[in-house]
Amino acid sequence: MTMSTTAVLHSEWIKIKSVRSVSGSLIAVFAATLFVTVFASSTVGQAEADNPGNDPLFSAFYALNFGQIAAISFGATALSSEFLNGALRTSLTAVPSRSLFYVAKMAVVGGLALVVGLITSFATFLVGQLFMGEYAIRLEEPGALRAAFGGGVYLALMALFAAGLTAVLRSALAVLSLLIPFILIVSFVVGGVAGGVAQYFPDQAGQLVLHAHQEGGLGPWTGLGVTAGWAGVALVAGWWTLRKRDA
């Protein structure tokens, strides 16, 4: 008799919803993004839109910068809860196939992040535009639908990237103190200077999908693909680590 994949997925879903810091991070993806959207677009939104060279589409998704921090926290805490106090032993006693356990967990993390990411991305666009008055753009605008959809995928990929890294490093604290400064400082600063290389950073590449027009060498979907590559490498590294190490 083999184990039921559905049953293991169900178990992973209960694990996520029953730990407040994990489910809270997921809710924060939506809540933080919407809050910043409403706050920013209702105050400085129209003034910013008036600036020459402003990309109104990219600006519409400005708040995803905050949502992605929550998405990273969600991915990291969902995995790190297994590495606390040897909880992993209990989990692997229930599901001894490490690949099944890992794939099921990542599927639930990725699936939830994708659903919440898409809702967040579309909601932030639609709600944000309510405050933009004459500068408002609509979903029918060129690239808008692609950006809204891509923004949701981007959030899910960042959550999976963090989740994979956490499986390698076995600590949410390590991953968060690595990724968040990277995204807030290194990528932001180096991104302005280094040009060519920086567009391949996981956050910079993925956010290309939010721009109205292609900038630099990577197209919107290619950029998102680069982020998917980062997430993929992290996921495989996490799987490898889990399979090789003693629990």
């Binding site: 694990k15 029953s18 730990v19 407040r20 810091s21 606390l84 106090n85 040897g86 909880a87 209990t90």
Partner: peptide
């Protein structure tokens, strides 16, 4: 195995 091996935030 280990009575501590459970996530403290869960009921």
């Amino acid at each position: 195995l280990d009575a501590q091996a459970a996530h403290g935030s869960r009921t």
